[in-house]
Design a protein around this nucleic acid. Structure first.
Length: 485
RNA sequence: CGGGGCGUGGCGCAGUCCGGUAGCGCACCUGCUUUGGGAGCAGGGGGUCGCCGGUUCGAAUCCGGCCGCCCCGACCA
């Protein structure tokens, strides 16, 4: 519905801008349950587009969807020591059901390893049954102290991939492959560039041997962990007795992986591209890529203009997601503002003058071009619209990448410089790290910045850093520091 | 759990200091006029003032207790 409420500018209060935008763009709403949000139809439409794209990618890498229960027996969760320890503080537990106290409490899944592996163990006898490549789309619950729509909620939607392999090498490759899939999705679909790499031991998933991550930089210069992929080694296989017989006839535990992205991606999308007018959606994830706003005065004009609008929609449907906003009793101006707030990439205005001249007025949502609004021949519009959208997608991606680079520093900078940067501007800082947890912790305590990732080769500096940012010793690694969500 | 703020029609708020039976803007409904950047006029509907208790002839307002939400910190995708 139309509203004249203005957004707090990003520069004034980014957090306020974000929460207001989520509401005003109709993406989500608060709910009667603390920490749990309602995803509204427009927000859910974005999620469905994300799901469709990711699901295709999972299928084409050989994965199959399945569904495992919401409840985990407490005893199952308890079987992998680090895993329980990691999740215990965040679990919701059902102790009563059917009017009686349960003999064994049921944990609402914070992630599904503990119910998948005991079951899948029965599906695996020999190496011929491997690899097992599963994915599930599900909701999970992690009790959070502080929540924000999409970024951190008590219940959230995600996909979790779970795979089992006959060798460690193959499992590691799988974890890496899926990280690559995430990266491709984030860059190609979300137009959100990411730095990939490995997490330090302190930031690892509970129970994992190695955790890989995609890290994106938001417009307020804070990092967002957008997706993670874990090499679990044989930890879960041992805990849940997932064994197979090798070609040579021996029994071995499988090597497994898990990987996930969540509705948090929508938060990333908002904070990567949104501006003071509202949401800005990349065409590939826009529920409406083009909205036609008809303009009329008389009843006769209304008919002509609407006919033209529907004709145009018909000419483009199948190639472009296009919507005709034929609501009465709402002025064109109000519609312009509403669709801009909702981030629709392109708008077409059709009035009596346009119909007479066989033209339409084309307006792009993205700022930064002098002729943001221009008349275009009707037939030409039909021809060029799809490629215009492709162009916008590329433009958004390039702009986001440029912004990230402008806010990335590569320097063996001194700790004081780093401290003041993190207190002010923020952004990504590539610097040396000696590899000791004490240094990682000290920097975190003093600056709130954390090691987001040990970047993959392609992101590393040409000149490797010479000293640890914190203690000045010879660095073991170059790492990416930032304040994170 | 610590610090700060706030609970009054769907949303945003005023009224609270100084008690007298609830008001404004937006949204909503009806009608007419409008429509190329957030329409105008007229009429209309909608609120146990977060909850419980106390003081009082009388409480949104004063007192006591409780609950909830938001923001900032410690845990996390």
């Amino acid at each position: 519905m139309a509203t004249d409420q203005r957004l707090t500018p990003q520069s004034k209060d980014f957090a306020a801008w974000y929460t207001e935008l989520v509401q005003l763009a109709g993406l989500a709403d608060y709910s009667p349950v603390r920490g749990c949000m309602v995803i509204r139809p427009y927000g859910y439409a974005v999620w469905e587009l994300m799901q469709a794209a990711l699901d295709d990618m999972f299928k084409s890498t050989g994965h199959q969807n399945a569904y495992f229960p919401l409840f985990l027996p407490q005893s199952a969760l308890d079987r992998e020591a680090e895993h329980v320890e990691g999740f215990a503080p965040q679990t919701a537990v059902v102790t009563r059901a059917g009017g009686e106290t349960l003999e064994e409490p049921l944990v609402v899944r914070p992630t599904s390893e503990a119910i998948i592996w005991p079951v899948v163990a029965n599906w695996i006898q020999s190496y011929r049954d491997l690899p097992i490549l599963l994915n599930q789309w599900a909701n999970v619950v992690r009790w959070e102290l502080r929540t924000r729509p999409f970024l951190r909620t008590t219940e959230f939607l995600w996909q979790e991939g779970h795979t089992a392999h006959a060798t460690a090498e193959e499992a590691q490759e799988e974890a890496r492959r899926m990280l690559g899939v995430y990266r491709e999705f984030m860059e190609e679909w979300m137009a959100m560039p990411v730095v990939t790499g490995e997490k330090t031991p302190s930031e690892r998933f509970a129970g994992a041997e190695r955790t890989f991550s995609c890290e994106a930089l938001m417009r307020d210069n804070r990092a967002l962990q957008a997706g993670t992929s874990h090499y679990l080694g044989q930890n879960f296989a041992r805990a849940f007795e997932v064994q197979f017989q090798t070609e040579a006839g021996r029994h071995e535990y499988v090597w497994s992986t898990s990987w996930g992205v969540s509705t948090r991606l929508i938060g990333g999308l908002i904070m990567t591209h949104g501006d003071d007018e509202g949401l800005v959606l990349p065409p590939r994830l826009a529920p409406h890529q083009v909205v036609i706003v008809p303009i009329w005065k008389s009843e006769e004009q209304r008919r002509t203009v609407l006919d033209k609008a529907r004709e145009l929609r018909a000419a483009l449907s199948g190639r472009v997601r296009i919507h005709v906003d034929d609501r009465e009793n709402m002025t064109p101006g109000a519609k312009f503002f509403e669709w801009e707030r909702k981030g629709v990439p392109l708008r077409i205005e059709i009035g009596p003058r346009d119909v007479a001249g066989s033209q339409v007025v084309l307006v792009r949502r993205l700022k930064g071009e002098a002729d943001r609004k221009r008349p275009i021949d009707e037939a030409e519009a039909v021809a060029v619209l799809p490629e215009l959208l492709t162009g916008l997608q590329a433009e958004m991606r390039a702009a986001a990448a440029a912004r990230r680079e402008e806010n990335s520093v590569r320097a063996d900078s001194d700790f004081e410089g780093f401290r003041s940067r993190m207190a002010g501007l923020g952004g990504f800082v590539y610097a040396g790290w000696c590899g000791r947890e004490a240094c990682e912790q000290k920097v975190k305590d003093e600056t709130k910045a954390t090691i987001r990732v040990i970047p993959d080769q392609e992101f590393r500096s040409q000149e490797p850093p010479e000293r640890c940012l914190c203690c000045g010793r010879a660095p073991a690694e170059e790492v990416l520091w930032a304040k994170a969500y």
